[in-house]
């Protein structure tokens, strides 16, 4: 862990908090992609499988628990309590291709040929693209509530801050995983496009709206 990854993790927590806050206050999940959140849930489950037998520190242990629990809770809310407000007709991204593509990449080049190694690699690739159903949904509706835009920006910061973290690790000659770096860059680029629109709209006090 470094200052950058610590801040990145905090941005991730902030993103989850913002999303839950929005869902709780508005009693609605309109504009939120269930598909993206199911993918994120799969990301955390496959990555943190070793949660109970590989203890590193209280920090990592509790963050992992928080990510798995909060993501399960978000999916639960969309599927149960807030189901009537879920825009199913807008959430039509074909996530099967993402799952298939990530599975193939993980099988071809896992960090280690073991169940854990393959699942971990799968989770890294899947995380990099898991937001696509959400961005696709945004593209279809053309605008987002400001708070959804805040959520996406916080998620952009999260992986974006890992990039200086990896550079720092390289600088102090610590091991860096190439897969994480590649996937992390893809992930940040996907959000960055969105962040540019965010800067032009939300930061100028306007409603988040994609250019026509």
């Amino acid at each position: 862990m470094s200052l950058f990854s610590g801040l990145g993790d905090l941005a991730h927590l902030a993103a989850i908090f913002l999303l839950l806050q929005k869902m709780r206050k508005s009693r609605s999940c309109s504009g939120i992609s269930l598909k993206s959140h199911l993918l994120f849930l799969l990301v955390y489950i496959t990555r943190y499988l070793n949660l109970f037998w590989s203890f590193k520190s209280l920090y990592f242990f509790s963050m992992r628990i928080i990510f798995i629990c909060s993501e399960s809770y978000i999916c639960y809310l969309i599927l149960q309590n807030l189901r009537p407000t879920y825009d199913k007709r807008l959430d039509t991204f074909r996530s099967g291709y993402l799952l298939g593509g990530c599975a193939i990449l993980a099988l071809i080049y896992p960090i280690k040929y073991s169940v854990f190694g393959i699942l971990w690699t799968f989770s890294i690739w899947l995380e990099s693209v898991a937001i696509l159903p959400q961005l696709f949904m945004l593209q279809r509706s053309g605008e987002a509530e400001t708070i959804t835009a805040h959520y996406l920006l916080a998620m952009c910061l999260y992986r974006g801050l890992y990039i200086p973290h990896w550079i720092y690790r390289l600088a102090i000659r610590q091991h860096v995983m190439l897969v994480s770096v590649f996937a992390g860059i893809i992930q940040t680029v996907l959000y960055a496009d969105f962040a540019i629109v965010y800067r032009r709209t939300v930061l100028q006090g306007k409603k988040f709206r994609l250019p026509a």
């Binding site: 990854s5 991730h12 960090i111 995983m177």
Partner: peptide, 10 residues
């Protein structure tokens, strides 16, 4: 090693 550095990140 590889698996060790996985544990350093979320």
């Amino acid at each position: 090693d590889t698996i060790q550095s996985i544990k350093d990140e979320l």
